[in-house]
């Protein structure tokens, strides 16, 4: 057979999925790894039978109903990554919340976060408004923490005034400027971040 490690992994999925089907036949509910294996196995077979990538992704959320799994299992299956072989070759299929996403009120879900009532404190720093025009022919994005005076020179604004500031966005967010687009933005001083201010 000249089985590769990848093919052996495929057989592990098949074995676990067969185990899951046996559990269902006995009227038993599935655990998280059993449900995962069954979903992956069905996606592999569907790809082999010629389904599209889109169909494979959609199949991931329809293989099992939540009540076919043990209580809590839906909340354990956040994301499944599986790589079936389509006629065009191997492709990654990512299925999010295959048994449905536990809602915020789902306080009994495994690992649930029960949030406090207050808002999270606002980051320290001076704030001001700034108008920024994109003179580029391309889309330009600026992320939360980039020092504004160093961004793409095709963004036109008062760089002097922007010195020591960044966009007032949550960490990891960004703003998009289409070609020719002007935005009025809120900026925040970098001095809330102690070690960096002297260098910027």
């Amino acid at each position: 057979m000249r089985l590769t490690p990848t093919e052996q992994d495929r057989l592990v999925l098949f074995t676990a999925a067969t185990h899951a089907r046996a559990a269902l036949e006995r009227g038993l509910q599935l655990s998280a790894p059993e449900a995962t294996a069954l979903i992956c196995d069905e996606i592999h077979w569907a790809a082999r039978a010629g389904c599209s990538h889109e169909q494979a992704v959609a199949l991931g959320t329809s293989v099992l109903r939540p009540e076919q799994a043990l209580p809590g299992v839906a909340g354990l299956l956040e994301e499944i990554r599986v790589e079936p072989v389509f006629d065009e070759g191997t492709r990654l299929v990512v299925v999010r919340w295959p048994l449905g996403r536990p809602d915020q009120a789902g306080a009994t879900s495994p690992g649930a976060v029960l949030v406090d009532v207050s808002d999270v404190p606002v980051r320290a720093g001076h704030r001001r408004a700034l108008a920024i025009l994109n003179t580029s022919k391309r889309v330009v994005r600026v992320s939360s923490h980039h020092p504004l005076h160093l961004v793409n020179p095709r963004l036109r604004f008062d760089r002097e005034a922007a010195h020591g500031f960044r966009l007032d966005l949550p960490a990891g967010d960004s703003l998009r400027w289409g070609p020719g687009q002007r935005r009025n933005v809120q900026v925040v001083s970098l001095d809330g971040f102690a070690n960096r201010e002297d260098e910027l």
Binding site: T4, P5, T6, D9, V12, L13, A16, T36, A37, C40, I80, R81, V82, E83, T90, L92
Partner: peptide, 15 residues
Amino acid sequence: LGVGNGSVERVQPTA
């Protein structure tokens, strides 16, 4: 760990 040939980490089956 996921499949060695996976395009990303944690491709099933993870073990």
